[in-house]
Design a protein around this nucleic acid. Structure first.
Lengths: 376, 376
DNA sequence: GAACCTCGTGGAATCGATTACATCCACCCT
DNA sequence: AGGGTGGATGTAATCGATTCCACGAGGTTC
């Protein structure tokens, strides 16, 4: 592969001049410039990014360590991160931790060894020494979605509290009183927060969240299945299962189906994280949607600000409730159809397009928060 | 950040000795080794991968350019690729082309500039000059899923022909006679092949695949929606729509739902690519499943073979039909329940666990090829 | 006409590793 | 004792870029 020396020889100039042409340095004669460009063309020369990075101590690369690529939420996040990074002149290397702290460490180390300019992390756990050292050691870093308390790193995330309260109001309005949750790992902020807020919201309605109705999941489908089986085997099973992410909701569906039960007639289901398929499941699933694309973009901007010497900003964006039919017919629909056997009742609302990049129109009757609190 | 010189100074030896310790070179005294290791420890030294790559001309990195990360098929492929690569001592940088040739070129160029050791590509189009030059220029390369005809590069892919014939047999057995397909881009091998094989299989049953029943999609959901709307507006709409990938099937579902029609009563639906959610859609969707994990692993092995001087092998693995309910009740089920209104008929077969990493048991009655041809 | 810029250019140092080669020393054999 | 062997180590070249510095030519200013 041709190097800068070959170009210099081909153009009859020094390597310094070639470098100046390539980097748009002003003091190069028009003559030299055209000769260099010609040589570049004929040799098919491309600058070696490795050598360049060694010299300049910048890689123009961001690392993104996410908890689970197979989770559509993180896939979408990764996509928006790459998009925004590309727009700002950076590329992205993704590390998939699969919810495993050891794998997370592997990727953090690998990325650090490659001297990435900055790190975007959605931590799987409370933070390994490696990551904490990196943060303290001055590696530009931003947490996205999840974070580690007590570390001085900007956080870009969604605030699901209001949406969870809306969900509980919705469920309560439908007459449900025994609500259970499939929680995420306690080592993650999102895992903790969702349970805590759910419990508080129940209490506001005079309801209880007993320990047997808190199932410990790990954000993976299998755990959702296992926990739901447990719920269904209880002497008094819950009327509603709220899964703290979409994969555990999938597992819950598996378990419910394996028992031959129906949603929402036999048991209601809701999930944190909205995905496109939830529109087409049987029945369509009520979920809490995060502004995933916006989160990814904001995280990249914060990180690049930090890298380029501007003060980075933490960002919190609201999540919102998307009501569908998995918890029962919404109260606002006149229950003309008997609430009984068939799950295939024609929805009286116009069909909702499956969730897409563009934010759905706020006035869509199928997409709305049934309760608005004072300080909304 | 500490460099090898700092370690050398700290241990009171030369950089050469440090390097030898780090690379496990035999001729280093035990004394020197322990002093170096101690210095490494106290300084928290990590070798600079950029400098190392410049010197050794290897990055131990594979590039993976896929057509669309948001497509669960490619997400799963990417995951298995990373896993196998990690096991073999390589890392992976993913480039998402979003089915856009220009983006594909951007990523190929970027990866080449980074001097990755080898490239795994699922081409979006017939091949840009850039990619063809790279292949001819000796960059180790392997095509996965899709390929470019006439280029001397190993191909790792699934063979869907038998499964498509099985699907047509299944559809024909259910009495369907007007079958339509949402095709992928003609510039992709998978896009072409699936239409061609579908058409041939129809002809084997004396059926025709008229042009109006071939909708041109681009493997994205929107095109599936658009094409399906077209089908439904035809004076004589098809009885079955076969989507050449899962995202276009999603779009088809959107379009069918927007018309207030039901699957399979009003129109049947099948898809290429099986995903976990297809078990839980309304109704569960009949699909052709690829051995995605095995494909990713085989592709990495072929590429690493090529990189490390062993002869790489092309690999073709069979896809298989997974019959569910989106085309009508399978013939083997006695149609005791009236085929009429309710879509929530209890399946007489035991519930199928959603598709997972482990291959489903072959004897599961819900997962099977209804027709076996001679040379099976 | 001397002093002084400015501009274009090349030489050479540098980034952080790896590694060929030279050197030194201890030991062994005849 | 002398020479050979081999292990441990250091010196320095090298990878492919960027960039500081020096230099020469040409133009401007007093």
């Amino acid at each position: 592969m041709a190097s800068i020396k070959d170009v210099a020889a081909g153009a009859g100039v020094s390597v310094a001049t070639v470098s100046r042409v390539l980097n748009g340095h002003p003091s190069v004669s028009a003559d030299a410039r055209t000769r260099v460009l010609a040589a570049v063309e004929t040799l098919g020369y491309r600058p070696n990014a490795v050598a360049r990075s060694l010299r300049t101590d910048q890689t123009h690369t961001l690392g993104l360590v996410i908890s689970d690529v197979l989770n559509p939420y993180f896939t979408e996040l990764a996509r928006s991160v790459e998009e925004e990074a590309r727009a700002l002149g950076y590329s992205v290397i993704i590390g998939n931790a699969d919810e495993r702290p050891d794998l997370q460490d592997h990727h953090v180390r690998n990325l650090l060894d490659r001297r990435i300019d900055g790190l975007l992390v959605s931590p799987t756990d409370g933070g390994s020494p490696l990551m904490l050292d990196a943060a303290r050691g001055g590696t530009p870093m931003v947490f996205v979605d999840r974070w580690i308390p007590g570390v001085d790193v900007p956080v870009v995330r969604a605030d699901g509290r209001e949406a969870i309260r809306d969900l509980v109001a919705h469920l309560h309005g439908l007459g449900h009183r025994r609500l259970a949750i499939i929680a995420g790992p306690a080592a993650t902020t999102t895992g903790q927060e969702r349970v805590a807020v759910f419990g508080e919201a129940l209490r506001a309605y005079g309801l209880d969240l007993p320990d047997v109705y808190i199932g410990q999941g790990d954000f993976q489908a299998d755990s959702g299945r296992r926990v739901t089986e447990g719920f269904l085997s209880l002497p008094e099973p819950p009327e509603v299962v709220f899964a703290a992410d979409n994969l555990m909701a999938l597992g819950a569906l598996d378990a419910i189906r394996a028992r031959g039960l129906r949603v929402p007639d036999d048991i209601a289901l809701a999930a944190f994280d909205d995905i496109r398929w939830f529109v087409h499941t049987d029945p369509p699933i009520t979920a809490i949607a995060q502004p995933t694309g916006a989160l990814g973009r904001a995280a990249v901007r914060a990180l690049v600000d930090r890298i380029e010497g501007r003060p980075p900003e933490s960002v919190t964006l609201p999540a919102r409730l998307v009501v569908r039919r998995s918890c029962g017919e919404p109260a606002s629909h006149e229950p003309t159809a008997p609430p009984g056997p068939s799950a295939s009742a024609q929805p009286s609302a116009p069909p909702e397009p499956s969730a897409s990049q563009a934010p759905p129109p706020a006035q869509s009757p199928a997409v709305r928060s049934p309760v608005r609190r004072s300080q909304s």
